[in-house]
Design a protein around this nucleic acid. Sequence first.
RNA 1: GGCGACGUGGCCGAGUGGCUGAGGCAACGGCCUGCAAAGCCGUCCACAUGGGUUCAAUUCCCAUCGUCGCCUCCA
Length: 451
Amino acid sequence: MLRLYDTATREVRELALREPGSVSIYLCGPTVYGPPHIGHGRATLVYDVLRRYLQWSGLQVRLVSNITDIDDSIINRANAENRPWQEITSKCEAVWFEAMGKINVARPTDVPHATDYVVQMVAMIGQLVDMGKAYLTDDGVYLSVQTVPGYGLLVHQSLDDMLAGGGDRDVFGAGNKRHPADFVLWKFSKPGEPAWPSPWGEGRPGWHSECVVMSLDLLGEGFDLHCGGQDLKFPHHENERAQAVALGKRFANHWMHHGFIVDAEGEKMSKSLGNVHNLLDLMEHYDPRAYRMLLLQSHYRGPVSVGQDNIDASVKALARFDGVARRFGAVSAGADAAVLEAFRSAMDDDLNTPSAMAIVFDAITQANAAADAGDEGRAHQLVAAIYSIADAVGLTFSADEQVPAEAAALAAALDAARAAKDFPAADALRAQLQAAGWTVETTKAGTTLRR
RNA sequence: GGCGACGUGGCCGAGUGGCUGAGGCAACGGCCUGCAAAGCCGUCCACAUGGGUUCAAUUCCCAUCGUCGCCUCCA
């Protein structure tokens, strides 16, 4: 069974399942107010790999990932561009799923929207108020973190320690709050802003409430795994948990957080630093599979630098990977059990995808070597295992290139020249094709072209 | 100030108390090839620094230096 690092306990421990055979996962999704960037790409790719692996292992996976479609960032953009906020959210959501499709990230089983859950959020906030754990101020309703036992579990810091330093920034709503760490559950709206009714006045929900309501509604108490980026650990996940704890509900059993994307200097990619990179741009310039390969060759908890060098190396690695499909095509042999077992054991060890990829590349070498030695049976078993693993991590093999007629004609001429042993002509034709950007492989069976 | 992560070969990046040490990319040599490409074989063989523990440390402990992150925008 899968063992995963748990942020709450700071140890790698078995992902205990509430119901044997099925896994319930909540992943914090995007706030839809701009194009997806490569950090979003990592978030979805890491958990897409997790999901596919669990499914490949025979488990039923329910993956809930929300869309935050009401938030200050959305309102700000709508105001700045003088457009209806719904236009922005619907457009951005469409772009989001388009980008996810391009990187072969499967759509979550459930995609709840914050705006569909406002009534339930209001109900939950009402309960917290009734319990005396949330209170009203002149700009909203706040959760009193001092009423929450174990607040700080995920950051491993007490409230006092959190306040001890670093607080140069302005604290939102500081003047109104009983404690600086108290966070807003309900924000009163200003005129012209999107607003929903509530017992305390018209307003909109704070960011941290939607995920609590939606995860508990769709997955129920004590669901298996809550995941997201390390930047969500605090305050977002801490504050989700705080609400659930305050309500007396069991929340996630296991917390998983993945690392940041960093720039060439090693700094976190961040909107405030202005070093974000659009995911769609990356997809346009490189094989979209390259990003998945790059992430698979790194551990999910570590930082990853997404630069041209890295992506290029992944593109090259994919060429070797694709060589398997080119050489062997479909195989009917049973998958090599030892390879699958090694793969499983790497993945079960806190999703050690770099090791898993090493196993795949080893198998590729072995398969090629076996075929070179004439042992097709052995080769096919290995290839079957490689295909199975590729499926488990969501890597596809690139389909045969559509070769334009002109290029195909040159390739045919090249074959003819070689058959006639007119090598100078053959070399000239090959040079011409290479100059046009083709990788030319001349074999006894004829010439193949690929980009 | 508090909390945390990390420093591995030309680059990226796993991992381990010894039995000698993934994988990818790059480079170089060989086989194959008319020549290439692809494929295979091989070479290049590292664990920030200083102490300590140990028969043995890159792996454990301590210190130092350095990088990065969090402490209410963020995947």
